[in-house]
Design a protein around this nucleic acid. Structure first.
Length: 544
RNA sequence: UGGGCUAUGGCCAAGUGGUUAAGGCAUCGGACUUUGACUCCGAGAUCGGUAGUUCAAAUCUACCUAGCCCAGCCA
């Protein structure tokens, strides 16, 4: 799938055409403080695909300028996710690689009279900043001499001051209607070990200062970020201009991607994990890339999904059906179609010999002969899906089994249900049916039509399997309600079912279509003697 | 009440003054079908509102309305 037309692609085309840039350089800059989720996939895919489209390059840069939140475990998880999506960064870099360089540029700003050391406390600074509708007022420390600023900034760096005691601020405009321009802090003191630079530094640059400089150092031409940074762009440009970097990068903002019924907030995702409401960041119900991967989503389905949603300057919420469709679309002709019964009910073919098993040759995928074929078993004892039987045919649309009704067992015979045997508690124990030998699949029998076609497995040869079915974690998307009250108690359901014997040697993350039931993937923990399958998505259905 | 951004069918989204306003998802018809799947046909918007400019406007202008973002020593 090719990246569709969007405003950033258009800007790049124009910049290339006008000679403003001669190659496209982008970057994906995650902060290593969380797992990536499907929302991040838009940023990743946009940056990489755009650069790829124009023959440019994309860096992965960990934005690690705040050591209190960051951790190298996230660095590894993020690298893995990006690699999984199929992208190779031109360079893997860290914001912390540039601490020395940005320190030098901070000194440059001080020397130009454009930055000063401020002694205001956080509370005081908030007061001085003013409000959305009223201008701020200048810090009493705003006009310190350059010499004093230089000395104090060096003292900050050398660890003379405690956290919060002093900051370095850009001297811009305390009455700007854009609050970001009201002398933003560009360096703060944090005495804590940094995952990458250890204890070398105790002052750390703020995002607004560090980011444009990093982009400049790397020769990034188009620095893409989300909409909320729109009113930081003026600051971005200010730092680039005042620091007089050799390369001049530009920032462009696009809308975030949300998905219906999906939690996309870092905080909530963390809460789900911390409170053990899920089994970790890679729980198959999680919208993290690790979770989607474990669930069985293919990278192609993720990339195609993102590309098909397009890109604009609107924060959009697309339907989760679109993601699901993307997976079905990808797997439809790619995977084997398997007989599996998730919620079994026993069927006895009373007119079929006790110890006879027939093996019927069936293609794995009618739409893709390259996938080959296997033999499926038919015998006296079978399992069918519980929901495929209703004692009395409820209406004329019912295309499954009922008492006195005949259906085809796919790729085998017509069977007719004659009697229902119940357990003591009134539940169904088994169905007594008869088959018609003349209706064998492929025989061309056409004297009568069955009431429908259902799938089955033969009991003595089928393999038992744990089958997990998922529903959304949240019952509704009313984000005003507390997270707990929105949890779906049925988000994870495990069934003891049976699959056809060809799945004996399945491997982790092998994908299948279980006929009429959906797309499934073999779980990480599945073994030959303990098969586990996860449903990725259901098949579409016009029956409900 | 300050600043910024946005507004095209149910959900995304092309479109940059002249085409019957692309496409995908969803929906609803219909065909096909040994998956109520797939596939194939078909159906549906005059572009937030109003007023202008123009031979011609979703595209330009003005005003209005609605939504989102911003007052971290987070990113």
């Amino acid at each position: 799938m090719e990246i569709t037309s969007n405003f950033i692609k258009t800007i790049m085309e124009e910049d290339l055409k006008s000679g403003k840039v001669d190659t496209i350089v982008t970057r994906f800059p995650p902060e290593p403080n969380a797992y990536l989720h499907i929302g991040h996939a838009r940023a990743i895919i946009t940056n990489f695909e755009l650069a790829k489209h124009f023959g440019g390059k994309t860096n992965l840069r960990f934005d690690d300028t705040n050591p209190v939140k960051e951790d190298s475990s996230f660095v590894e998880a993020i690298k893995k996710d990006i690699e999984w999506l199929g992208y190779k960064p031109a360079n893997i870099l860290f914001g912390s690689d540039y601490f020395e360089a940005s320190y030098e540029l901070a000194i440059k700003l001080i020397n130009k009279g454009l930055a000063y050391v401020c002694d205001l406390t956080a509370d005081e600074m908030r007061e001085y900043r003013g409000t959305l509708t009223s201008p701020g007022k200048e810090s009493p420390y705003r006009y310190r001499s350059i010499e004093e600023n230089l000395r104090m900034f060096e003292e900050m760096k050398n660890g003379k001051y405690k956290d919060g005691e002093k900051t370095l601020r850009a001297k811009i405009d305390m009455s700007s209607p854009n609050i970001n321009m009201r002398d933003p802090v560009i360096y703060r003191i944090i005495h804590i070990e940094h995952h990458n630079t250890g204890n070398k530094w105790c002052i750390y640059p703020m995002y607004d200062f560090a980011h444009p400089l990093q982009d400049a150092f790397e020769g990034v031409t188009h620095s893409l970020c989300s909409l909320e940074y729109d009113d930081h762009r003026i600051l971005y440009d200010w730092f680039v201009e005042k620091c007089e970097t050799e390369h001049v990068p530009h920032q462009y903002e696009f809308g975030r991607l949300n998905i219906t019924n999906t939690i996309m907030s870092k905080r909530y995702l963390k809460q789900l994990v911390d409170e053990k409401l899920v089994k970790g960041y890679d729980d198959p119900r999680m919208p993290t890339l690790a979770g989607l991967r474990r669930r069985g989503y293919t990278k192609e389905s993720i990339v195609n999904f993102i590309l098909s949603t397009g890109l604009s300057r609107v924060n959009s919420t697309v339907s989760s059906e679109m993601l699901e469709n993307s997976l079905r679309d990808d797997l439809n002709n790619k995977v084997k179609r398997i007989n599996a019964v998730i919620d079994p009910i026993k069927v006895v073919i009373t007119n079929y010999p006790e110890d006879k098993i027939e093996w019927l040759e069936v293609e794995y995928n009618n739409d893709n002969p390259d996938l080959g074929s296997r033999k499926i078993a038919f015998g006296r004892n079978l399992y069918i899906e519980r929901e495929d039987f209703l004692e009395e045919k409820p209406n004329k649309k019912w295309k499954r089994l009922s008492l006195g009704i005949e259906v085809r067992l796919m790729y085998a015979y017509f069977i007719k249900c004659n009697e229902v045997i119940y357990n003591e508690d009134g539940t169904i124990k088994e169905l007594l049916c008869t088959y018609d030998e003349r209706t064998k699949s492929g025989s061309g029998f056409d004297e009568r039509k069955p009431n429908g076609n259902i799938h089955f497995v033969e009991a003595s040869t089928a393999l038992p399997a744990k089958i997990n079915l998922f529903e959304p974690l949240l019952l509704d998307s009313d984000s005003k309600k507390e997270l707990f009250s929105r949890m779906n108690p049925n988000s994870w359901a495990t069934f003891s079912g049976f699959v056809e014997p060809s799945l004996k040697n399945t491997y982790s993350l092998e994908r299948f279509q279980f006929i009429r039931k959906g797309y499934f993937a073999t779980d990480y923990d599945s073994t030959e003697n303990n098969l586990i399958f996860n449903r990725i998505v259901e098949l579409k259905s016009s029956y409900n």
